[in-house]
């Protein structure tokens, strides 16, 4: 199964989830997603998603200047983002239950 396609569908929720407790800059978010098991996630996909969620008003962003080197851009979840995350959790649960049920081997009383 092409997991990159599946990933696309859940990337918004996944990104919102990893910044739910802690703000993070782009590569930080990538790393959190990877260490959570989404190893195939593309860097640019995450950056694009962050920007889209920001443009949709689900994230806030702020720049942290660095003493040496370029500044970092942090993203943090905002109330709009939390709403969105909650809604996506619900729909994911419903969706995954449906698919689980659908894919369960015959006789497996799930």
């Amino acid at each position: 199964m092409d997991t990159t396609q599946l990933l696309k569908g859940v990337l918004d929720a996944a990104v919102l989830a990893v910044v739910e407790d802690d703000d993070g800059y782009g590569y930080d978010v990538v790393r959190r997603l990877r260490s959570a098991g989404l190893e195939d996630v593309g860097d640019a996909s995450v950056y694009g998603t962050l920007r889209r969620l920001y443009a949709a008003g689900a994230l806030s962003s702020y720049v942290v200047p660095s003493e040496e080197g370029p500044h970092r851009k942090y993203y943090g979840i905002n109330p709009r983002g939390r709403e969105l995350l909650e809604a996506q959790r619900k729909s994911w649960r419903a969706f995954s239950e449906t698919v689980d049920h659908l894919l369960a081997p015959e006789g497996d009383p799930r």
Partner: peptide, 14 residues
């Protein structure tokens, strides 16, 4: 800028 802000720092880390 929205898409690539902070990209240098992230890429340098990578």
């Amino acid at each position: 800028e929205e898409l690539t802000g902070g990209l240098e720092a992230d890429l340098a880390e990578l």
